[in-house]
Simulated scan of single mutants.
Amino acid sequence: MRTKVAIIGGGPAGLLLAHMLTKQGVDCVVLEARSRDYVEARIRAGVLEQTTVDLLHEIGVDRRLDAEGIVHDGFALSIDGVPLRIDLKGLTGKTVTVYGQTEVTRDLNEAAEERGIPILFEATDVALHEVTSDRPSVTFVHKGQAQRLECDFIAGCDGFHGASRRAIPADRITAFEKVYPFGWLGILADVPPCDHELIYASHQRGFALASMRSETRSRYYVQVPADEKLEDWPDDRLWDELGLRLGAETAARITRGPALEKSIAPLRSFVAEPLRWGRLFLAGDAAHIVPPTGAKGLNLAASDVAFLAEALVDHYRGGTTTGIDEYSARALSRVWKAVRFSWWFTGLTHRFPTANAIDRKIQLAELAYIRGSTIAQTSIAENYVGLPFKA
């Protein structure tokens, strides 16, 4: 097999890149280790920055997004049960859209099928070869047959545990990592949301989040220790804890229901540098992980592939390597700003096991400052809606 760009990973990053390249006449093939059903069922992020929404509009994968996505002008920051609304639209002129990553993935897959974009699901034993040469290739097994895909470039969009980043020699890449001593226990339920906007709660018992996937499906989270066991959290205990952390006023609006899905997600910050080795480029979770606080993971993946698609299209259209050479630095500039915001927002809203009384007092003082400062609220809003690509 032969193509211009081999895309490893059929999640949102790889699929979005495939659509952007195809629209500009650049051939590509997507290799995905899992089945399509598995990929489309993964429960992930649900808040899209305006820049991500704009990218989906650009490639024409927006019909269901426009019909079903829920536009939010703001969100609430609850401080021991007392809400403070961050007016995103009023402070920045921008909004965010609640639309689940599962839905984005489904839309991208359906559009790829219609447009004839080749996606090979259940492509296993992926290995990268001759990445620093002008004829890189990828070998894999598909439907029991060993195959080789020759290409000009490889886009590694295959997640934190994928083959792409591991293909870079250890002495050519640096990993920066912070592992948090807690996780998020999440519940997905077919019940109406307790509020029309998201609520991030900083409570003396720990963090909580009231979110949604639609007008009839809710997603809630509570902070738990990193070693917590899921079986220790029956539904009733989780609903009770959410009520305590979100405050009495919000608790009165919570509709309880059986869990469609319940899981504990660990929190970490991770960045690999650089994002290029030879003709291999890293994007999305293969390149970086951020805590879900602030909803940056999917949106960072979208900005990565926007930069990468632009660079590759410029190369094929004009023969220039400027965009390719600048991809890593350009993407990382935006990545590190999002890592900083996610780290800061996590520290502001969570309780750390090593924290003492003065740490909580300082945390409360910062929250009080935010409540009284339009400038501080604007800073939060600017980061939450997403920094511009050229920032």
Score class of each variant (00 low, 15 high):
Tyr180Pro: 01
Asp107Ile: 13
Ser214Trp: 02
Pro292Asn: 08
Glu49Asp: 14
Ala208Gln: 11
Lys143Pro: 03
Ile70Val: 11
Trp233Ser: 02
Glu113Arg: 14
Gly323Ile: 11
Asp171Gly: 04
Val141Pro: 04
Ala259Asn: 05
Gly347Trp: 09
Pro234Tyr: 13
Thr354Arg: 11
Leu84Cys: 04
Asp125Thr: 00
His129Ile: 12
Cys157Phe: 01
Ile117Tyr: 07
Tyr200Cys: 02
Arg148Tyr: 00
Ala368Lys: 12
Ala155Phe: 11
Arg42Tyr: 02
His57Gln: 08
Tyr99Thr: 02
Leu308Trp: 12
Glu382His: 04
Gly186Val: 08
Tyr316Cys: 07
Ile199Lys: 14
Ala376Asp: 04
Asp27Pro: 04
Leu198Ala: 15
Ile79Arg: 15
Gly46Trp: 01
Cys194Gly: 14
Arg245Ser: 03
Gly100Glu: 12
Gly284Pro: 02
Leu244Arg: 12
Arg34Glu: 11
Asp190Met: 11
His203Lys: 14
Ile362Phe: 12
Gly116Trp: 06
Ile380Gln: 00
Gln147Arg: 15
Arg165Lys: 14
Ala33Pro: 02
Ile375Val: 10
Gly206Phe: 07
His57Ser: 01
Pro291Met: 09
Arg253Ala: 10
Lys337Ser: 12
Asp107Arg: 01
His142Val: 07
Ile43Cys: 09
Lys178Trp: 09
Pro225Ser: 11
His57Ile: 06
Ala163Trp: 05
Gly14Ala: 09
Phe270Glu: 00
Ile59Asp: 01
Leu367Gln: 12
Ile362Gln: 13
Ala67Ser: 06
Ala368Met: 05
Arg334Ala: 08
Phe345His: 06
Asp27Lys: 06
Asp80Asn: 15
Val290Met: 13
Glu32Asn: 04
Ile289Thr: 10
Ile7Pro: 10
Lys390Thr: 14
Ala355Glu: 13
Leu280His: 01
Thr322Val: 15
Gln50Ala: 13
Phe345Ile: 06
Leu185Cys: 03
Arg334Tyr: 06
Asn356Val: 10
Leu65Pro: 06
Val313Ser: 14
Leu185Ile: 09
Val335Cys: 04
Gln204Leu: 15
Leu149Pro: 03
Tyr38Val: 11
Glu114Asn: 05
Thr102Glu: 15
Gly11Cys: 07
His72Asn: 11
Ile173Gln: 06
Phe160Leu: 07
Thr321Pro: 00
Thr132Ile: 06
Arg135Pro: 02
Ala301Phe: 01
Pro291Thr: 12
Gly319Met: 14
Cys194Ser: 13
Leu332Lys: 10
Val71Glu: 08
Ser164Thr: 08
Phe389Gly: 15
Tyr316Pro: 10
Ser379Pro: 00
Thr378Ile: 00
Tyr38Lys: 07
His19Gly: 07
Pro181Gly: 11
Thr354Leu: 13
Ala18Lys: 07
Ser78Trp: 02
Lys178Asp: 05
Arg115Gln: 08
Leu55His: 03
Thr124Cys: 04
Gln50Ser: 12
Leu16Asp: 03
Leu209Arg: 04
Glu261Ala: 15
Ala76Thr: 09
Leu84Ile: 15
Ile375Gly: 00
Ser333Arg: 01
Lys89Tyr: 15
Val47Leu: 14
Gly116Cys: 04
Leu280Ser: 03
Cys157Ile: 05
Ala391Gln: 09
Asn356Tyr: 08
Cys157Glu: 05
Leu48Arg: 09
Gly386Val: 09
Arg34Met: 08
Pro266Met: 05
Ala329Gly: 15
Glu113Thr: 07
Arg237Tyr: 11
Glu241Gln: 13
Arg63Lys: 13
Ala287Trp: 01
Ile362Gly: 01
Phe352Ser: 09
Gly46Cys: 07
Thr105Glu: 12
His315Met: 02
